[in-house]
């Protein structure tokens, strides 16, 4: 992962905007931001962002690469799409934030302990495994990501909700063993492998 970062730094030198335009989903839109701040004011988690979207956009143009990619900010996005529909310049801000977070994660620069980064990884691994969400496994992995003791404590804190979900038939108590998933899961695995290959090639990631 560190190598990926070094090779990108060498490739783009001081032009972080160019790097974002080439490698980040919808990154070509970044330069269209006119710094009005409607996105920041529209974000449900706005106060939790160290750098709101319009600031991130300006930081990209100013070449503050490390600060942007190591930021917790993008990981506060709840995918509510408020910023997208309100942006007067119609920037796909939600997607750019997702794209930046994904890029930082791929380069190994994203904050290691950020809970949303960790949950997002657990979620994708969960669906990629069987093709469909296994909700019990997802919750168990999330609770136990900080080790056994922390997991037991979190599990206890969530006990009432879990029991409520099971009692109302909305959580499978045997989900760790009885989850079916997709029939063509082998095909899905091959398909995803190919998709990663293509994306890595396109974005210049070393395999």
């Amino acid at each position: 992962m560190g190598d990926q970062n070094t090779s990108m730094v060498q490739k783009y030198r001081n032009d972080f905007l160019k790097e974002v335009e080439a490698n980040v989903e919808e990154g070509a839109w970044v330069k269209m931001c006119m710094q009005c701040g409607v996105c920041a004011g529209s974000c449900p988690l706005g106060p939790a962002w160290e750098h709101p979207p319009q600031e991130i956009f300006m930081m990209i143009r100013a070449g503050r690469r490390e600060e942007v990619l190591k930021s917790e900010s993008m990981w506060m996005c709840t995918s509510c799409y408020n910023c997208i529909v309100r942006c007067p310049r119609e920037l796909p801000i939600t997607h750019i934030m997702h794209g930046l977070a994904n890029y930082a994660h791929r380069l190994g620069l994203a904050p290691k302990m950020n809970p949303t980064r960790r949950f997002a990884k657990i979620f994708w691994d969960n669906i990629a495994k069987s093709g469909r969400v296994n909700e019990l496994e997802l919750s168990v992995r999330l609770y136990f990501m900080d080790g056994f003791k922390a997991g037991v404590l979190k599990g206890l804190a969530m006990k009432d909700i879990g029991i409520g979900m099971m009692k109302t038939g909305r959580l499978n108590p045997f989900g760790l063993f009885a989850h079916k998933g997709c029939k063509d899961i082998k095909g899905i695995h091959k398909m995803l492998k190919k998709a990663y290959e293509i994306e890595d090639r396109k974005k210049g990631f070393v395999a």
Binding site: S79, H98, T116, A120, K121, G131, V133
Partner: peptide, 18 residues
């Protein structure tokens, strides 16, 4: 045999094409 849509939160590990 439909599969998961990836949801919004899939972006971090799933990237764009996957």
């Amino acid at each position: 045999d439909w599969n998961c849509c990836g949801a919004s939160i899939g972006y971090a590990q799933g990237g764009e094409l996957p």
